[in-house]
C-alpha cells in the first residue's frame, strides 16, 4: 500500500489594487458600489481596460445600485469553507441599477424557490468594512440595503491593498524508494540506487534514473560510504517569511561521497561554523542518536531520515579545482 502524506500550503498574498479596483474597494467601505464608464456602457465591477478592445478607460466612475436585478442564478446546496454563507444560497449574476454588466455575488434566498430571474435584490453590508468584495456579505430580496452589526463607517484613507489568504491542502503519495531510504537511515545506512542501464547511482530515495527514464526497484539498492568531501556550500541568511524557523545565518554544504559519483546536496554541517567551511574539506556523516530520533528523523528531513549532517573528520583537505563544480 502506498503511503500518502497531507500538507497544507498557505500563500498570504498582499495585492495592490491600482487606481480603478482601489476606488471600487474604497467606495465599498462607504457602502457605495462603483462602475466605470466605457462608451455607453457602465462596467461593474470596474475594469482598467475595456474587455473587448483592451483600450485603457478614463477613470470616470459611476455610482450604481445599491439595488439590482437577478439576471441568472444557481443554487449552492452545500457551501464550501470559501463561500460567503454557511447555509444554502444562490450564486447570482446581479445587474445593479445603472450598470450594463452583472456582478457575481451570493443571494441569501432561503430556498431555491426564493430566487428567480428578474427578482429585485439589495446588498447586506458588513458592519465593519475592509475594502473587499465581501464587505457585501451577500444580496437579500427587496430594494432596501441592510447592515449587519454596528456600522463602523468608511475607511479613513483610500484602500490601496487587499489581503488574500490562499490555503490549499494536498495529499501526495510517498514513493516507495523514499520510504525505503528513510527506513535504512534508522539503521544508519545511507542507501543508494544503481541504474542497471547506465550505472549511475542516486541517493535520497530517488526511485528512478532521470537519464534513462526507468524506475529503480529494491534490486538496485547499494550501501553508500559515510565519508566524503565538501564540494561547494552556501551561507544562508534567513529572510523572515511566514513559516521560516531559522533566525541566524547557517551553512548548507554539498558533499561528494568517497568512491562514488554521488552528491548529497544542501546538507547541514555540525561543529563547523560558517567562517571556517572550505571547499575540499573532508567530512563524516553524523547520525541521530536514538534520543534525537523523531518521527520525521533527525536533521536533514525527507528521505535522509536519521542523517543529521556532516562533521569535519580531521583528514587533510582535497586540493582539486574541479570539486567546486560538483553540486549535482
Amino acid at each position: 500500500m502506498t503511503r500518502f502524506i497531507e500538507s497544507t500550503i498557505t500563500f498570504p498574498y498582499k495585492r495592490s489594487l491600482g487606481p480603478v479596483v482601489g476606488a471600487f474597494m474604497t467606495a465599498l467601505t462607504e457602502k457605495q458600489i462603483l462602475g466605470i464608464r466605457s462608451g455607453d456602457a457602465v462596467l461593474v465591477p470596474p475594469m482598467e481596460w475595456d474587455p473587448s478592445t483592451g483600450a485603457e478607460l478614463a477613470h470616470e466612475f459611476v455610482e450604481v445600485g445599491p439595488a439590482g436585478t437577478v439576471e441568472s442564478w444557481t443554487w449552492v446546496t452545500t457551501p464550501s469553507e470559501q463561500h460567503p454563507l454557511d447555509h444554502p444560497f444562490a450564486f447570482a449574476l446581479v445587474r445593479l441599477d445603472g450598470a450594463t454588466t452583472p456582478l457575481l455575488h451570493a443571494v441569501d434566498a432561503g430556498t431555491p424557490g426564493g430566487v428567480s430571474e428578474g427578482m429585485r435584490v439589495a446588498p447586506r453590508w458588513r458592519g465593519t468594512r475592509a475594502g473587499r468584495i465581501d464587505d457585501i456579505i451577500c444580496f437579500v430580496p427587496g430594494e432596501v440595503p441592510e447592515t449587519e452589526g454596528e456600522d463602523t463607517g468608511g475607511a479613513a484613507e483610500p484602500v490601496t491593498r487587499m489581503d488574500y489568504l490562499a490555503s490549499i491542502t494536498y495529499r501526495n503519495p510517498v514513493p516507495e524508494a523514499a520510504d525505503r531510504a528513510t527506513e535504512a537511515s534508522r539503521e544508519h545506512r545511507l542507501l543508494g540506487l544503481r541504474c542497471p542501464a547506465c550505472g549511475r547511482v542516486y541517493a535520497g530515495g530517488r526511485g528512478l534514473c532521470p537519464v534513462d527514464a526507468i524506475e529503480l526497484g529494491p534490486e538496485c539498492e547499494v550501501d553508500l560510504p559515510h565519508k566524503g568531501t565538501i564540494t561547494n556550500f552556501a551561507i544562508v541568511t534567513p529572510v523572515q517569511y511566514p513559516g521560516q524557523t531559522e533566525t541566524e545565518p547557517f551553512v548548507r554544504a554539498f558533499v561528494l561521497l568517497d568512491d562514488t559519483d554521488v552528491i548529497i546536496p544542501y546538507s547541514a554541517v555540525i561543529e563547523l561554523p560558517a567562517d571556517q567551511i572550505r571547499v575540499g574539506q573532508r567530512v563524516d556523516a553524523v547520525w541521530a542518536s536514538p534520543a534525537e530520533e523523531t518521527e520525521e528523523g533527525g536533521g536533514m528531513g525527507g528521505s535522509w531520515g536519521s542523517l543529521l549532517g556532516w562533521i569535519p573528520n580531521g583528514e587533510p583537505d582535497l586540493d582539486d579545482p574541479d570539486l567546486v563544480n560538483r553540486i549535482f
Binding site: 444557481t74 463561500h83 457575481l104
Partner: peptide, 26 residues
C-alpha cells in the same frame, strides 16, 4: 491531490471572484 472545488476558485479573478469562492460548478 487536492479538492478541485477549493483550488479552482483561487485561480479566478483575485479581487472580485476568488474571495467569494466562485467555483467551477457555479
Amino acid at each position: 491531490t487536492g479538492d478541485p472545488a477549493l483550488i479552482y476558485p483561487m485561480e479566478m479573478d483575485p479581487y472580485f471572484l476568488a474571495p467569494l469562492g466562485a467555483d467551477p460548478l457555479t
